[in-house]
């Protein structure tokens, strides 16, 4: 007998006559209400990420100032990221086409992305490799990640995000910069992912 059949048979034998249970979903489910921008801002900040709130007209300028502040000269800009936002003076916008090698990604100063969904209650941004986000490695290897979040993408809680996302896409949920709790159980920012996360909320 194959191990597959062996395991499945054992499972069936173990379960013979065991009653099923009802799943009551009495918790707060998805809402149609938009997420609270202030709450999102606060919660992202709680993770010690840098947060700015700007209007549409102010995005390009804010991006330019953030990059200048870090002295970033070469940044990866994934396909579909609004070009008007990344036209900062003195900054080379590098496309991931042909795809950059991991070592190549390690040499850039940062990455600009948008996001698929953002969650107010938990201060989370979710990337789904859609337009403006690129493949997963882009927001991982560089040490600096600037994410532009349109207010319309902000949802209230986790159930709203799950309802909006497409599981067939590779998803990355990001809540603050890379961190560890492994040393005496205190959260310390900055291990393998980007050590600086900057979030721009566009109202």
């Amino acid at each position: 007998m194959s191990s597959r059949d062996l395991i499945l048979n054992r499972v069936r034998r173990a379960l013979a006559g065991v009653p099923d249970v009802e799943i009551a979903r009495a918790y707060r489910g998805p809402t149609s209400a938009p997420g609270d921008i202030r709450l999102f801002e606060q919660r992202v900040r709680d993770y010690r990420a840098v947060v700015h709130v700007v209007d549409e007209a102010g995005v390009a300028d804010r991006v330019a100032r953030s990059l200048a502040g870090r002295g970033a000269r070469r940044v990866v800009v994934p396909a579909g990221f609004p070009s008007a936002w990344s036209a900062a003076e003195g900054v080379a916008a590098i496309a991931d086409d042909p795809p950059l090698s991991a070592a190549g990604l390690d040499e850039v100063d940062g990455v600009l992305t948008t996001c698929a969904v953002a969650i107010a209650e938990t201060g989370t941004i979710v990337l789904d490799a859609g337009p403006g986000q690129g493949r997963r490695a882009l927001s991982l290897v560089p040490d600096y990640h600037l994410c532009v979040v349109r207010a319309a993408r902000i949802v209230a809680g986790v159930p709203d995000a799950v309802a909006r996302l497409d599981p067939t896409r590779p998803l990355t949920w990001i809540s603050g910069p890379s961190a560890t709790s492994d040393i005496e159980l205190n959260r310390i920012e900055g291990v393998h992912g980007p050590r600086t996360l900057e979030v721009l909320i566009v109202t």
């Binding site: 938990t122 201060g123 799950v162 998803l171 990355t172 949920w173 809540s175 603050g176 959260r187 992912g193």
Partner: peptide
């Protein structure tokens, strides 16, 4: 996941959400 992505981070590291969650199919 709408249930477990709330239960697990809060119970384990005591955070509203852990820094990274990866999902792939």
């Amino acid at each position: 996941l709408e249930v477990f992505l709330q239960l697990l981070p809060r119970s384990s590291t005591g955070e509203r959400m852990n820094p990274y969650t990866s999902m792939w199919t």
